[in-house]
């Protein structure tokens, strides 16, 4: 279904719609998330990683050794574009990273001096109040992304955020569902989970499915059961707010 839409005179926005579909089709095969990104974007390498407050630092998907190395370097050094992107909740764009290094990452800038790199871009993975990770992209030659591309990659990042968070929750499924007081309790609490989902989707103005993911992500991070989280939301002891983008991370 995807191939037919790529062929021929498909206009640019459709290319991104195709990429979004292709990303969604990779549920359960998240190691391949780089494939649609690489196909749709004017870059030479792409990676998806998790780090930050709730998920362990891990490269989920990398197109090549260079992409993997960029992630690993940043994890090891604790600095670099992906950290800034997640911190500021905004893309970090470095069109010519070796000739015009970013002074806020001295160790990272030095570490990549010998690498064959032109531009480096990092897009945050954020869902509602949850900081999940980043997409890192690189090119071999200096390159400047158009503002339209930045916008489109940001929407792809939202798709990737859902997939990556779902993956983490899926992998920890036994832990989360471990609340089983009894099946009845689950049935009963499910009603409260639906109510809490409604409250969260109204707080964050996001779709119901995303609100549920946010609650699951929060439960996962806090090591609590969904029933407990739902009860706290309904009792108004817990509420969520969207992370606002702080600064433009571009370095032009």
């Amino acid at each position: 279904m995807v191939a037919t839409r790529i062929a021929g005179m498909t206009p640019m926005p459709d290319l991104f719609a195709v990429a979004a579909d292709a990303l969604n089709a990779l549920t359960g095969q998240e190691a391949r998330l780089y494939e649609p990104l690489l196909a749709a974007l004017p870059v030479d390498g792409a990676s998806v990683s998790t780090f930050g407050d709730i998920l362990a630092a891990e490269t989920i998907s990398a197109s090549d050794a260079q992409s993997f190395r960029l992630d690993e370097l940043q994890f090891d050094l604790g600095e670099g574009p992906c950290w800034d992107a997640l911190q500021t909740a905004a893309p970090v764009l470095e069109p010519d990273i070796r000739k015009r290094p970013n002074r806020t990452w001295p160790a990272f800038s030095e570490a990549i001096l010998a690498d064959d790199l032109g531009a480096v871009f990092a897009f945050p993975l954020i869902l509602g109040p949850l900081r999940i990770g980043a997409i890192d992209l690189y090119t071999n030659r200096p390159y400047r992304l158009s503002s339209q591309s930045v916008q489109q990659i940001s929407s792809l990042a939202t798709v990737v955020s859902r997939l990556v968070l779902s993956r983490a929750i899926r992998l920890s499924h036994t832990e989360i569902e471990n609340e089983t007081d009894s099946a009845t309790r689950q049935k009963f609490s499910r009603r409260e989970i639906h109510q809490a989902t409604g409250m969260v989707l109204a707080q964050l103005r996001i779709p119901a499915a995303d609100a549920l993911l946010v609650m699951q992500g929060h439960a996962f991070a806090a090591g609590r059961s969904m029933a407990e989280i739902a009860a706290e939301i309904i009792d108004r002891r817990l509420s969520f707010a969207v992370i606002e983008s702080q600064i433009e991370g571009s370095h032009d």
Partner: peptide, 9 residues
């Protein structure tokens, strides 16, 4: 149930 949550908020 979800709609009740929306209104509750």
């Amino acid at each position: 149930e979800q709609a009740k949550g929306v209104l509750a908020h």
